[in-house]
Design a protein around this nucleic acid. Sequence first.
RNA 1: GCCGGGGUCGCCUAGCCUGGCAGGGCGCCGGCCUGCUAAGCCGGUGGGGGUUCACCCCGCGCGGGUUCAAAUCCCGCCCCCGGCGCCA
Length: 462
Amino acid sequence: MATWSILYYLRNDPDVLRESLRKRGMDPRLVDEAVKADEEWRKLKRMVDEVRHKHNVVTRRIAEERDPERRRELIEQARSLIRERERLEEQLKRVEARRNELLLSLPNIVHESVPVGFSEDENVPIRFWGRPRVYVEHLEAFKQQTERWGFKVDYELIDWKPVGHADMLEYVLGLGDTRKAGEVAGSRFYYLFDDIVWLDIALLLYAIDFMTRKGYRLVLPPYMVRRKVIMGVIDMETFKDAIYKVEGEDLYLIATAEHPLAALYMNEEIPEEQLPIKLVGVSPCFRKEAGAGNRDLKGIFRVHQFHKVEQFIFAKPEESWALLEELIRNAEELFQGLGLPYRVVNVCSGELGAPAAKKYDLEVWMPAQGRYREMVSASNTTDWQSYRLNIRLVRRKGMVKEYVHTLNSTAIASTRTITAILENYQEPDGTVVIPRVLRKYLEMFPKAPKDAIHPVKKEKVN
RNA sequence: GCCGGGGUCGCCUAGCCUGGCAGGGCGCCGGCCUGCUAAGCCGGUGGGGGUUCACCCCGCGCGGGUUCAAAUCCCGCCCCCGGCGCCA
């Protein structure tokens, strides 16, 4: 009764899946393998069921049979059926494992509105907001990232080169120490101090305040989850690149609150009148960044641990696409509030990741880098996660059961947003102005910064 | 971590000691009846397969084992409740 979209197309229209895999730059023959495995599984299952049935019939007769001789004969018959059954069951087990592995390896079906492309530069910007500060030498690069797509974005030309976020943090402000953190924990870890810590906390409070006002329910989830949960929300690839395991336990550190939030209703049925369920989770995030190589090695842009406020929605299938727009708009409002100039891109098919059918990224202009960089990612994962976590929707009429749709989006990721503030709110003298919307979350603390974060005093040169 | 009690179809519950097709109640869905509602009566109410309303398989927290046959007996694990211990 409950139909998973991928299994449906596998059996009824596999071309849809082949086309989707092609768009992702994957081998469409994976679909043929899956179709074959499913057919083989069904055939074998029929055979096994038949033998089981025969065995059940004989067994029931034994219970009634009183004559010892006749009884012995029946037991011998049952034994021989068991041998046959076990032989077939072993085959079934093998085929079933293969089939499930294939089914779970299939990525979500790419939505028709997703641009086909295989690298980051093929993401399609759909709107811009704000007036970026563009350093003269970045002007060409800036135009490349705006006008190439037919957008005319107003900008402020500056003739001084802003200091990059990593150097700002470590040397200009003197409020971060990644060298010592490297010694203590490894690269991509950090110590943050004083005003930057206040800023981290203020950002979280700002996002929590905003999202809860929108009616999202505030959740503090488990920071570790079982393997079956993690495999329910991400694919193997992401698992290898991102997930930390706790030694000796079936526990994995979450890479985002999305993971435990998705699992909040695992193995449950949600009546349709309860949907949509809108949540806002707050948690630390732990990521191995194994696939990142040397990218963004300096500073706190790409790190093993950060705080994030996350939007999450359980939805009826017919409303999920509208809710994806809501999630990205929420994120945009948050960044507009912060006054950080951004663009929203429609992420191309090859960069989606297996769980998502469609994804928007919000990228903030980084004046020191001369690039838009990802701050927010909003995805509609349709029934990909809910199938794996077994989260179903029950319609009032007719007791129809389907899988719910799940959606997720960043609200604010602390360290990344801090890097954007360090570059966009930087004055020529190194002072960082604190965005207005954050000030009320700092006011009540006597030691928190109020209007600006100042450069560390230069030591006097004698 | 230790000791004890528990986990059965959406919810509640019987069955477990003594192995033989998982029974009842509530809720929900459909039908009958009905001026309407309620009551009452009948059927349905987990997953999968199938020639799709014949039928079959699987399902009693999860995984093994014993047996012709396991909710029931044995072993391991998970979770919940209570007590002790530890602890911010």
